[in-house]
Simulated assay, not measured.
Amino acid sequence: MSIDILNRDTTPEVSRPAAAVAPKEGDVLGRIGNLETRLARTAREIDAAQHVRYRVFVQEMQAQLPPEAMRRERDFDAYDAFCDHLLVLDRSIEGDSEDQIVGTYRLLRQDVAMVNGGFYSASEFAIDELLARHPDKRFMELGRSCVLPEYRTKRTVELLWQGNWAYALKHGMSAMFGCASFPGVHPESHALALSFLHHTVLAKGEWAVGALPGQARSMDLMPKEAVNPKKALMALPPLIKGYLRLGAMVGSTAVVDHAFNTTDVLIVLPIASISDRYLNYYGADAGRFAS
């Protein structure tokens, strides 16, 4: 989850300030009990989501953000101005909507990315090569996923995916991708899990993608016969495990992100690859989850 985007030549220009965010018709994408997922409607909600990100990435995961972000206790960058922000809100919490945000995802469609400097993941992975092989497809980037500790339940993750799925269908997306992270900056400490990903769900052929030269770290850290699949699955972060259940593939190499104190892998998920079980559960009609 590299935050060094402001020093890259491809740094996006902020096409509109965050305050320009407006309510969007049909932006509620799902509900389970007291939890609701929808897009952020106001700049204040985006600001609150950035504070949730700060709590998880900095206070919990020990990320080192730029001084202004640390001072404001907000994880923010130039991409926030033109991405959509998926929220999970706990409606049982008293107060305004900003006080109810317990989880968030940042969504970036290809058409928006291309007029604003490209995708965030391109600072670590060879995204342009992947896009060039699929000129007929529309990609969507998932990023900055985080959920407050007390809400890290199957229900919350399910609701986030419900929102992602409905959003992707509503906008006619062909594939999703994004960075997913292991804690810490030593890939070797995740040798079992990384090797399992390398040997079992490696993106190949037209979907193959690796880290940028100079950043690539091997995921092939153990021979296939030495990998215990059951133990490897238990060692995977819940988010990555959720991606795999949907039929996701993983890029060939990882990236160490010292700023965020993580080891990142690239998840690639063609819509057509989502398993029938989940497709049937979430439904082929995005409107099913719109209020």
Rank of each mutant, 00 (worst) to 15 (best):
A232Y: 13
N34T: 15
P66Q: 09
A63H: 09
D47A: 10
A284M: 05
V28G: 00
N116P: 04
P67E: 07
D77M: 01
L148V: 15
A22I: 03
A126Q: 15
D77K: 01
D4A: 09
G172V: 11
T104L: 06
E45M: 01
G184V: 14
C179Y: 08
R133Y: 13
V256P: 02
I5C: 01
N228R: 14
T11R: 09
A63E: 11
L148S: 14
L221S: 13
C179A: 12
D96M: 00
P238Y: 06
L236H: 14
A113D: 08
G117R: 07
T156K: 07
E94F: 10
A166T: 14
S181D: 10
M219V: 09
R55N: 03
E25V: 05
M176G: 02
V14D: 06
D90H: 12
V115Q: 12
K24R: 12
G143Y: 05
L87R: 03
I5R: 01
K137I: 02
M234P: 00
H258D: 07
A19Y: 05
Y120I: 00
F177T: 08
I267V: 15
E150Q: 13
D128V: 01
V88Q: 11
P238W: 06
R144A: 06
A40W: 12
G214D: 02
A81Y: 08
Y281N: 02
L108T: 15
V227R: 14
R72V: 02
R106V: 07
K231Y: 09
C146N: 14
A20W: 06
N261T: 05
D285V: 08
M61E: 13
V227L: 13
V185Y: 09
E141Y: 10
A19K: 08
G178A: 04
L160W: 14
M222S: 10
R152D: 15
R44N: 11
S181H: 08
L266K: 01
W207V: 04
K230R: 15
V58P: 02
S145M: 02
R91D: 11
A284H: 08
P237Q: 11
L130N: 09
V58C: 03
G30N: 10
S273C: 06
L39D: 04
K154M: 05
R133T: 13
P187F: 08
W165Y: 11
R109I: 03
N280A: 11
C179S: 10
F57Q: 01
P66W: 00
I127T: 14
L202K: 11
L169F: 11
S252P: 01
A40I: 09
P149Y: 14
S273H: 13
D90F: 11
D136V: 01
E206M: 00
A126H: 10
A235D: 15
T156R: 06
G205H: 06
